[in-house]
């Protein structure tokens, strides 16, 4: 099952990269909005993950949030 999940992830990654139009910096106003960042609520995110990591049996892969907003 894990192997199939990894394969699906790899295919998704390829599709994500290959299927996307290139977005220019001047088109990224919406992408730079703070509500679209991950995590948008850092303190809440930390509080929740803190609890889930202790109470639940598995962890990992909770964060993936790149920039690319062109606002740097």
């Amino acid at each position: 099952m894990t192997h199939r999940a990894c394969l699906a992830l790899a295919l998704l990654a390829l599709l994500a990269v290959a299927g996307c139009a290139r977005v220019r910096p001047y088109q990224r106003g919406a992408l730079a909005h703070r509500a679209l960042a991950h995590p948008a609520w850092p303190t809440a995110h930390t509080a929740h993950q803190h609890v889930f990591q202790i109470r639940e049996g598995t962890e990992g892969a909770v964060d993936a949030g790149g920039g690319g907003c062109g606002c740097n």
Partner: peptide
């Protein structure tokens, strides 16, 4: 982790840990 801009209104994130 990989983050991809899909279009001017959204992202897709993928991660393996």
């Amino acid at each position: 982790t990989l983050t991809q801009i899909v279009d001017p209104r959204g992202y897709v994130d993928l991660a393996i840990d």
